[in-house]
Amino acid sequence: MNLDDLKGLKYYIGYAAAVMGFFIYSHMVGWKWFNPTHTEKEHNNGTHHVGGGRSYMYHK
């Protein structure tokens, strides 16, 4: 491969760099793209539930 070949591949190189960058970033922050574990966040302003009364259930 010479410089002209690389110029011809500029879009592929850009695309591959973006995909690889996304892959590396995801690993660094522990992000699994397609995660079969469905999660939901709930914010409780510094306090949290200690009992039942959950209004939803999640099933895999």
Binding site: K41, E42, H43, N44, T47, H48, M57, Y58, K60
Partner: peptide, 19 residues
């Protein structure tokens, strides 16, 4: 079981289930 991972500092719950 339903699980609630609780951040004790912020109170944020991450809720998930597993069978």
């Amino acid at each position: 079981a339903e699980f609630s991972l609780i951040d004790e500092t912020t109170g944020t719950e991450t809720i998930f289930t597993k069978d």
